[in-house]
Each structure stands twice: as C-alpha cells, then as structure tokens.
Write a protein that binds this DNA or RNA. Structure first.
Length: 406
DNA sequence: TCTGGGGTCCTAGGACCC
DNA sequence: TCTGGGGTCCTAGGACCC
C-alpha cells in the first residue's frame, strides 16, 4: 500500500482542531472596562505598543512599534498603561470556557490556545458549530471578541484564525486545504519571520504554493535541514502534532531595558540583583528549581550576547542564583565596556521541580521564606531602590562576589 | 524621542564517555 | 599507536512568536 494512503487511515478526515485567538487582547479588555474607549483608537503601553485596538491598527499602528512612531501615525489615539492583572483575569475566564468545551486544550500564550474537539463529534456536533458556541460564550461571559480557526491540523487552524481576524470564524474543509493555503504569502507560515521571508523572496518565492512547488531538497539548501523540512511539510499541510495538554514551562526570565548612556558597575549590579530577586521569587512560587542561569545582554548597536552557567544542583535560592549571575556579569565586563550595554536580562532554564505535589526542594525552604519576607519588608518600607542597595551591599541577598568554580 | 518583556525551538562545536 | 561511531551535556548564538 502506498504511504500516502496510510495517512488517511489514521488522520481524522474531518476538521477537529480549533485555534482560538482573542482579538487585540489587551486593548479589547481596556475597551470593555471603559466605555469611553469603545470605538476609538486605543494603544496599550507607553514606550512601546503592547497592543493596539483595531481602530488604531487602521492607522498602521502595530504591536511592538515604538511609542513615538505610533503617536505620529495616530495622534488622536488614547494611550493607556497596561493592567496586567486585568488581562490575567480575563485570560483565566476564557481558558475556563476552553476547558469546559474540551479537556484537550493547549495554551500558547495569554490570549490563544489550541483545542482538539475531534472526539466531541457525536456529543456536540461538528467542529464549526462548537467553535461558534465557543465564540458566543466568550462574548457573553467575558465580553471579548475571539476569532477561531477550524481545520484538520493545528498549523492550518492557526493560519485560518489569522486570516479570519477580527471577530471571525473560518473553517478550512479537508478537501480545500491546499486551495486555501497555496495562494497565501509565505509570511503566513508559522515560523517564517523577516529573515526567512527575505531569503525566500530574494529567490522569487512569494507564496506558500511556491514553497510546495520548490520541493524539499531545494528548500533545505536555502534554509537548512530542519527548517527546510519543516516548512515544506507545512506548505503541504502535513502537521501531525497533537494538541498537548499540560505542557510545562521550560524557562523563566526577567529583563530590564537601561536606555543609553554609561552605567557604573554598581548600577549594573543593582539591576542584576533586582532581576534575580524577581525571577527567583517567581520560581519559588511555582515550586520549581533551575540549574542553568543565563545572562542576556543587549548593546548600543542592538547586537546581543548571552552567557550561561549550569550548576551541579538545581536551586531556587536567590543568593546562589545571584552569585552565579554576578560571576557571568563579571566575565562579560570586557564586551560591555566595548559595546555599551542597554539591556540586562536573566533567564533561568533547565527547570526541575514539580508544581503539583510538594517537592523535596534542594534548598532550605525556611531560609527562603525568611529571605522573601525580608526582601518584601525592605521593598515595602523603603522602596525598590533600597532593595537594590541592600543587594549591592550583600545584605539578605547573599555575598557580593561569589565566583564560579574554576 | 530610536525598540518591552515574556517565551519557544534549533544548530553547532567542544568536552567527555562508551 | 592509531582509529571509529555514537551518545549526552554544556555553551553560545539565531530565528521566531505574542
């Protein structure tokens, strides 16, 4: 039996994957909560656009755009500061509706998820009807517009929702997949960004159909083995990935932009201490531990560098993680002096620990509670600058110059 | 008025082990 | 003394996403 026949035996021939994506999420929450913002161009965020309402998008305002450029494009836009807790709350309410719809939910971010409803056909009918119900419930119960793409694969469901935005529903029937996909521009493919699109467009490849026609080996020459194989498969809508329930976070980080201008080593260290404090507290709250500390740097010329160190044992201890981060920063001093640092980030990866059951954590739980209490105490009473001063002096947050083992 | 802050996955080389 | 294949881990960088 030819291989391509086998696929049809196992892969569902009905569209059972949903990709649900809230429209202009942060901006929509603001418009929901403040009637004066409805129907008007709204920008969430100051220095940079975190989200723009569709009224603002009509003027060319886009997510991640600089605030100055956004105000030039749309001077009448109302700019509001982000209210992260409101967004988290709205997101949780929407995810509740997702999980009442089907237990097979994979969250992708605060505002989007995949839902597998292929097993619900007998119980709840075809996927498009389930998607319509879902959209209505989100609107009625949470007061937000959500777009849903319906298809046989995750990838195509995501493409469909992007095409259907805003406030839309689009099903791609299994017999119309390639007819839908091939005329689309290459940027619609999940994983094709500016760089990849540039490489392809320079060779005259502009649509998904062009990629399919090019063939896998030619694509591999241009993009490398994995990327070439991956994109070729997507161009033919070959995407066997299942919806994964209960994926665990693989890293946790915090970063701070510093702006331009020289920074003293003391200032850099204070920023580093505050970042490690923040992310280590999140780590402990999630009952996780980390074994690898990554220092991220961005420089005046927008180049970037990372430095990392892996500990022999996982830890959630602020002092230990800070000591490692400090040693990484110290080792990066030459490159910082050469290029001028504009952003510092700390990421903790190689995560262990279990969020569900009480884990035997390889650190002194009581000591850390005391540490958190003292850190909170300092912050509440004296503000965060006092906290970073304390870190600088090595109080509460550990010795000032612990070094890596040689 | 130059550009947040949070993530994911892949690649490639070197060290080290069997 | 020389030679080989295969695997894992660590580090650094790159691309992409919301």
């Amino acid at each position: 039996m030819p291989e391509d026949r086998c696929e049809h035996v196992f892969v569902s021939v009905v569209a059972g994957m949903l990709h649900a994506d809230l429209d202009a999420f942060y901006a929509s929450v603001e418009q929901r909560d403040d009637a004066r913002l409805r129907g008007k161009p709204v920008i969430v965020g100051g220095g940079v656009v975190l989200a723009a309402s569709y009224e603002a998008k009509a003027y060319g305002v886009r997510t991640a755009m600089g605030g100055a450029q956004a105000r030039r494009l749309c001077p009448q836009a109302i700019v509001v500061p982000p209210r992260m807790s409101a967004y988290s709350e709205a997101s949780a309410a929407v995810f509740d509706i997702f999980r009442r719809t089907t237990p097979v939910v994979e969250g992708l971010s605060i505002d989007e998820a995949f839902l597998d409803v292929s097993g619900l056909r007998r119980l709840a009918g075809p996927a498009a009807g389930i998607a319509e119900t879902l959209r209505r419930e989100v609107r009625e119960q949470v007061g937000l517009a959500i777009t849903v793409g319906v298809a046989r694969t995750k990838f195509l469901a995501k493409v469909a929702s992007a095409v259907a935005k805003p406030d839309g529903l689009l099903e791609v029937p299994p017999d119309a997949e390639l007819a839908f996909l091939h005329p689309l521009p290459i940027e619609r493919l999940w994983g094709v960004g500016e760089i990849t699109a540039g490489k392809l467009r320079r060779r005259g490849i502009e649509t998904v159909g062009d990629i399919a026609q090019l063939g896998q080996s030619a694509l591999t020459v241009i993009l490398g083995k994995a990327a070439g194989r991956h994109l070729y498969a997507l161009a033919l809508n070959r995407d066997p990935r299942p919806v994964e329930v209960g994926r665990r976070r693989r890293s946790m980080g915090a970063q701070a932009a510093l702006g331009r201008g020289p920074r003293t080593p003391e200032e850099l260290d204070a920023v580093l201490a505050a970042l490690v404090d923040r992310v280590a507290r999140r780590l402990r709250r999630a009952r996780r531990v980390s074994r690898t500390v990554v220092l991220r740097l961005r420089f005046g010329d927008y180049t970037r560098a990372t430095r990392s160190h892996t500990l022999p044992e996982a830890s959630a201890d602020t002092a230990q993680l800070l000591g490692t981060a400090r040693a990484l920063l110290a080792a990066a001093v030459p490159i910082i002096q050469a290029r001028g640092v504009t952003l510092i980030g700390v990421a903790l990866t190689n995560l262990g620990g279990d969020g569900a059951v009480q884990p035997p954590l390889p650190f002194d739980q009581r000591a850390n509670h005391t540490l958190d209490a003292s850190v909170d105490d300092v912050r509440d009473r004296f503000g965060s600058s006092a906290l970073t001063r304390a870190a600088l002096l090595g109080r509460d947050l550990g010795p000032a110059v612990p070094l890596l083992p040689d």
